[in-house]
Amino acid sequence: MTAHLDSGTNPPAQLPRIGQHDPVAQQVPVLQHGGYDQLDDHELLRLHVAGNPDTFGFLVKRHRDRMWAVAIRTLGEPEEAADALQEAFISAFRRADSFRGDAKVTTWLHRIVVNACLDRIRRRQVRQADPLPEDEDRAAELAGPVEQDAAEVRERRLDVLNALKQINPDQRSALVLVDMEGYSIEEAASILGCAPGTVKSRCARGRARLLPLLRQWQTTRGGDSDLQDKASETAAGIMGTE
């Protein structure tokens, strides 16, 4: 599915990666202020609130791959994810002064991104009930630039993203928050604006939908016999307590 993407061997020069000093990128004047990579997130945000025009952009660069992952998993469509992230970051830019210093900046940003994604899902649900049709070419682009990851990592990422796209958006949001992003049921309920029981139910049903879609992925990872062995162990652990 991804083979055609592997033809480009030269990574795009303008792709700045966190922690990697790209000589091309360093010639761009906006980065010449320098030294920001030494500052932690809190300090960058503090400077932004104090009026510094550069530090917020720096913060965005530092965390955009994490936030992209959240957005693309929740929304499934690159255009939607890009729009949601843009909204989220502009919103964060404008209300940075409301950030409480005792939290992690990433937690705060993450929450803003999640909310922007959920807003889009709600708006989309109003517009149309059906998910957008699957498109192989676009699906491949979901997994990000080719050159950065091993083929199997990309393959797995694509499988998960494509499987997530096939389940109902409510179940998907709950699963992304709880299983993938590690929010507690209560936190997810508060973000989603529904009862904890609803979140549990959406997660359960979402997993039941995903299972057949990802079973091949699971068995190829562990091998059938492995899975079976592991299965019996886990079962013994969990069922034995009853």
Partner: peptide, 30 residues
Amino acid sequence: YDALLQLSEDLADEGRSDIPMPADVAEHLD
């Protein structure tokens, strides 16, 4: 039963990995 348990773990694993933002999206965002 066990595959469902494993699925949650696998999703958590996958969830811990970032996904590189495509270059055009990153440029536009900047």
